[in-house]
């Protein structure tokens, strides 16, 4: 625990902090108005929640025979010379009355639906990709860390090779490799068997998980090695096997030391998922880029994008801090 002294003029420096932040925002606003940028924050929400009109159109030519409301639905029946069709729509959305004549394509009912906007969809993809990659990254890292300190040279060398390869090349290159090389090969092989191709999302997940796994492996190794050898000896001398000793004695203790660097690694992973746009995964960054090109409001949107990442990473680090506190108690 760091003990801080209360410095002289404490309140002044607190005020200075808020002053500097306000100044920064003010400067940005001033500079943007100098280049004649018009801020239109009101245009942002539509990219989170989109309202869309949905039309129900007649498919045949005929007379509207019935408009019946039943509960929260309305049923519109159109009878033609040879056939009869009934259309369902939400109650109150009917635009025709009994006896009206309808041609194919005429709107019978119009109602609004609320859909998640592009940014929200992008956020969801980022969340999904990161979550899956984190789960696999943990599993992979755990095995790598254990293999890295194994007495078996095959396992140990495999772990070292994996770690060095992954840490030795840029993630961007690895993503390209996964998508354009391994992805192409795998999908071609699948096609030969008549199996539909695996979507790029999964190659993105693979590249992130395998990238994170190498770093997690090193974190796990360091965590395990920081536990005194006496703990292994005590548990093994009681007759526990390797797995029992790891699960009940070593890993629970190592967890406390593994958690903080692990949080950092996974925060990186969430941010790195922004690279997946290059292989046509419409995650948050790519979604933002698309919206920017249609809306022409880049300033607002890139700020929103940054803040959404901040929300994700901050939630993750809060969650890990909570876990840390829990392992501290037990």
């Amino acid at each position: 625990m760091i003990v801080r002294k209360r410095i002289a003029h404490h309140a002044f420096w607190q005020a200075a902090f808020f002053g500097i932040i306000a100044l920064g925002i003010g400067l940005l606003w001033w500079a943007s108005s100098e280049v004649e940028y018009v801020w239109r924050w009101y245009r942002v929400p539509q990219y989170f929640i989109a309202q869309m009109d949905v039309e129900i159109n007649a498919e045949i030519e005929g007379t509207v025979k019935a408009v019946e409301e039943k509960g929260d639905k309305v049923f519109i029946t159109v009878a033609g010379a040879y056939d009869k069709e009934t259309y369902a729509a939400p109650a109150g959305s009917a635009r025709v009355y009994e006896g009206d004549f309808a041609f194919p394509g005429d709107p019978l009912a119009v109602y609004e639906v609320t859909r998640p906007g592009i940014l929200l969809q992008g956020l969801w993809i980022t969340l999904k990709v990161s979550f899956i990659a984190i789960i696999f990254g943990i599993l992979l890292g755990l095995f790598t860390g254990l293999a890295r300190i194994s007495d078996n040279p095959c396992l140990r060398w495999l772990a070292i090779t994996y770690i060095e390869f992954i840490r030795g090349s840029p993630l961007l290159v690895q993503i390209y490799l996964w998508y354009f090389v391994f992805g192409t090969i795998i999908n071609n092989l699948l096609a030969k068997q008549g199996i539909p191709p695996i979507s790029s999302l999964w190659y993105g997940v693979a590249s992130l998980a395998i990238f994170a796994g190498a770093y997690v492996g090193e974190i796990v190794r360091a965590g395990i090695q920081s536990i005194h050898r006496g703990q292994t000896e005590a548990s093994r001398s009681l007759g526990m096997n390797y797995v029992q000793s790891m699960v009940h004695v070593i890993l629970p203790q190592a967890m406390r030391r593994i958690l903080p660097p692990l949080a950092g690694q996974f925060i990186s992973l969430i941010k790195d998922s922004s690279l997946l746009g290059i292989i046509a995964i419409r995650e948050l960054t790519k979604a933002t880029r698309e919206v920017v090109t249609t809306s022409l409001q880049p300033y607002e949107l890139w700020f929103v994008c940054a803040i959404l990442y901040l929300v994700l990473t901050f939630s993750l680090s809060m969650f890990v801090q909570y876990l840390e506190r829990r392992t501290l108690i037990s």
Binding site: H228, G230, Q231, E233, A234, S235, R236, S237, L238, G239, M240, N241, V249, P252, Q253, T327, S330
Partner: peptide, 19 residues
């Protein structure tokens, strides 16, 4: 592991499980 279950050991540094 079967042998060790039959042979108790006490260490100089106790080595209790702190968690």
């Amino acid at each position: 592991n079967k042998v060790r279950a039959e042979v108790g050991m006490v260490f100089q540094q106790f080595n209790l499980f702190p968690h």
